[in-house]
Design a protein around this nucleic acid. Structure first.
Lengths: 214, 214
DNA sequence: TAGATTGTTAATCGATTAACAATC
DNA sequence: TAGATTGTTAATCGATTAACAATC
C-alpha cells in the first residue's frame, strides 16, 4: 500500500482485509484510537501472527505495547481494497438472487455500488431497490455509456455466456459470476466465481469427515 | 474414498470435486463411458496434473490412453461429497437472500435439501418454494423433531447469534453463515462463512492490481 | 508398435507458524 | 523498569508443478 514495489499479496490475505476492516471500524466507533493485532486476532479467532503480518503489510507502523493508529490503519486498508471510492457495477438477471444483491445494504460499506440492472423479462422493468432495470438487449450500450468495468452475473445458466459476452462488448473487465457456468473470456477479463456448490461441499465434508485439520 | 486410511483431503481439493462432477455428469449425459483427466482439465481450464491427482485420490483406477470409467468415478465423487443421499438442512431468515436459496433449484443435484425455514415475521408464514416457513420461536423444537444437523443462516446481523444458538439448541452441528457476524460456537460445531465482502475484495483486487500471479 | 494418459515420486512454491530481537 | 506488542527472519507445512516410468 505504500508506493514502493512490494511482495504480491495473495488471495488469502486479501480475503482477510475486509474482516479486519469490520472489526477496526467497530473499534473506531467505540472511540478506540489504537488497535493492536492481538485484539483484532481475538475478535476474529485468527492467529495473532497472521494479523500482525497482514497489518504490517499495509505499511502503517504500529507502536509496541499500543498497536496501530486507528485512523491510519483503516484508511490504508480501505485504500488498498479500493473502498475509499465506490466501484460501480451493473447486474444482469434480476431474479431472486439478483434482487437480493440489488437490495443488499452491505455493499455501500464495501466501496461497491450497483448502478444499473438488466433482465430479459419485461415485467422486471422499472426499479428494484432504487436501481433502474433495463432490457437485456441494451447491456452493451448502457455499460459503455455508464463506463462501468464490473458486472454481476445472476442470470439462468443457459444465458450466462451470451450475457457475459454482451457485458464485455460494453467494456466490462471483471465478472462476478454467480452461475455454475464455466465462462469463456479473453485473458484480460477477470472472472470470479461465486461457487455455492463448492462452499457447501467444504462444509459438508468437514461435517462428515471431522473438523478440518487446522 | 476407499476404505483404507488415506491422506487428508484439503479444502482446495474438496472445492474442485463439485466442478468435476458437473463436467462428468454432462459427459455422461452425452453418452461418454470414460473420462480422461485431460478432457476434464480442459473443460474447466485447470492444470491436467491437478485433475489427474484429484481423480486418482478417489481410489478409482484409470486406464492409460482411455481415462476413468464414468459410472465409477461419478459414483465415487458423489459418495465422497455425500451427494448420494441428500443432506437435510433448515434455513432461518426468509428475506431476499433466504428466499433465493429456498428457491434455488441447483441444490437437488448437490445432495442438499432444505426441509424447513424460519422467519420472525408472521407475514412470511406458510410456504416458500414449497418449503414450510415456521416462527423463529420454534427453531430448536422443530430442528430437533426433524433431526437436522445443518442450518443456513440468512437473518439480519443483529439476530444471527441468537438464531444460531437456537439452532444449536436443537442439535445443529454445522452452520452455513451468510451473515457478516463472527459467530460464537462450541468447538464441535462447524461454521462455514459465505463472505461476499471477501469475494468482492479478491475480484476488485485483481481488477485493480493486475491479474493474479498464477 | 507408437503414443497418449495414468500413477507416483521429487522439486518448487507460497503460506503458515515459530522464534526472537527491538521498542515503547 | 518490566512486559506486552511489533517487526522480521527462519522453520515448517501443504499444495502446486515438474518429471518420468508404467501401461493400455
Amino acid at each position: 500500500m505504500s508506493g514502493a514495489r512490494k511482495a504480491e499479496i495473495g488471495d488469502k490475505m486479501v480475503k482477510r482485509y475486509p474482516l479486519y476492516l469490520r472489526v477496526l471500524r467497530e473499534m473506531a466507533a467505540q472511540g478506540e484510537t489504537y488497535a493492536s493485532g492481538a485484539v483484532v486476532a481475538k475478535a476474529l479467532e485468527l492467529d495473532p501472527i497472521v494479523v500482525r503480518k497482514d497489518l504490517s503489510k499495509t505499511g502503517v507502523r504500529g507502536k509496541p505495547r499500543v498497536g496501530f493508529p486507528m485512523t491510519e490503519i483503516i484508511a490504508s486498508i480501505e485504500r488498498y481494497l479500493g473502498w475509499n471510492a465506490a466501484t460501480e457495477a451493473v447486474l444482469a438477471g434480476a431474479g431472486r438472487l439478483g434482487s437480493a444483491l440489488l437490495g443488499y445494504p452491505g455493499f455501500q460499506h464495501q466501496g461497491f455500488k450497483i448502478v444499473a440492472a438488466f433482465d430479459a423479462n419485461p415485467k422486471k422493468r422499472g426499479k428494484i431497490a432504487g436501481i433502474p432495470v433495463y432490457p437485456s438487449a441494451q447491456i452493451a450500450e448502457i455499460v459503455r455509456t455508464l463506463n462501468v468495468s464490473l458486472g454481476i452475473l445472476t442470470v439462468p445458466a443457459d444465458q450466462a455466456q451470451a450475457v457475459a459476452d454482451a457485458m464485455m462488448a460494453g467494456g466490462i473487465r471483471g465478472i462476478w459470476n454467480f452461475t455454475p457456468v464455466q465462462l469463456s473470456v479473453p485473458a484480460d477479463v477477470i472472472v470470479k466465481r461465486e461457487d455455492l456448490a463448492a462452499s457447501l461441499a467444504v462444509l459438508s465434508h468437514r461435517l462428515r469427515h471431522g473438523e478440518h485439520p487446522k
